[in-house]
Design a binder for these strands. Sequence first.
DNA 1: TAGATTGTTAATCGATTAACAATC
DNA 2: TAGATTGTTAATCGATTAACAATC
Lengths: 213, 213
Amino acid sequence: MAASAVPNPTLRRLPKYYHYLKRIQGEGQEIVSATQMAEDLGIHHTQVRKDLAATGSQGKPKVGHRVADLLASIETFLNWNSASDACLVGAGNLGSALLGYPGFDKAGIRITAAFDAHPSKVGKKIHGVPVYPVDKLEEVIRRLNIHIGILTIPADRAQHVADVMVQGGIRAVWNFAPITLDVPDDIIVENVELYASLAIFSRKLSERGRLKA
Amino acid sequence: MAASAVPNPTLRRLPKYYHYLKRIQGEGQEIVSATQMAEDLGIHHTQVRKDLAATGSQGKPKVGHRVADLLASIETFLNWNSASDACLVGAGNLGSALLGYPGFDKAGIRITAAFDAHPSKVGKKIHGVPVYPVDKLEEVIRRLNIHIGILTIPADRAQHVADVMVQGGIRAVWNFAPITLDVPDDIIVENVELYASLAIFSRKLSERGRLKA
DNA sequence: TAGATTGTTAATCGATTAACAATC
DNA sequence: TAGATTGTTAATCGATTAACAATC
């Protein structure tokens, strides 16, 4: 389990660069300097250079980087070229939102099956994805050979569902539930911490005078 | 604009502690040691101690911390006791999900108005929150005296809406759009970077052998 | 060429982890 | 008391920023 050579903060910034580059590409810009990127994104220019270097991209002195090259480097580095099949458990508000997100298939994740406990949702399709009963989870993911799971259920059931996922052959879990999952060492877990951002936001609010009504 | 005395990583961990404490409280546990928390959450015990100290909470040697005290300290520290009014712009998939999130009012944010560009949504209520036309944004938030804005619209319109928000008196923006907003210095902005987590997840996937189908 | 830009090596900064004294 | 636990001070680690040589 060698630690990634690329620091996590760098990985977290890559999508920022990616979306920025997509935007300026859409505006017709073909070349960009790390300096310009740094200014527009509010990041130190040395930081930008190191981050771009981590993806293996190279620029030309005095010229800059080709926007298309940078986009390709980031896509390749994050494996966003080819998408893997994934399942999503918990087709509630957040889960449905993720099913409708247009960006995921472009970002390496193709959700091909959803699961929910509510009979009213089972058998329907949400944003084109079929919803199965959650007690068929292990059976279906095994049959469809799905190795990536997305957890969008309440915290109190998340551990149980994660256990079933692992039993069904899931190797990686993208977890939106606010709980620390206990899974075997060889299972990849990445937690989305919505409340982390809210905590920083809350603290900023309470520091900077009272905005409260 | 003095930098927060409390490090951001600490702030990001507080909700983790909070949800953990809520859970063990629900299980009837009244006392917890930093050691136990550290083990259960996979965080270094010294880290846990420093984080808890930052909230102003104190424990008793040999005994530990009262769970209720820790919860109260975190709530107070993040100002999650009293909720501020907020508006949400962009009642699409993600926006609707946030409107339906049960946790926010308990976390200091009460969404009292939503805005959307689609006439089909305007005039209705989503999860009890009235949806106004987005061109009434400035007028409505000024009338309702709302100072917090939540941005859940596509990146290409986010900057424009942020401008209108600021003009209407918004002082703090919780931004879900993948774009770096350009706002006056005295406006608080906190970005939720969904794709940051996805990037780390993607990289872990591509490092740890091929899970791709 | 001159100068803008790249990319690397060194210095700084800040967070994490280790060591340890204080307490009940 | 003895020992578990707290909480603080010091050491380490890693990321960011600064300095600078290389390049077209």
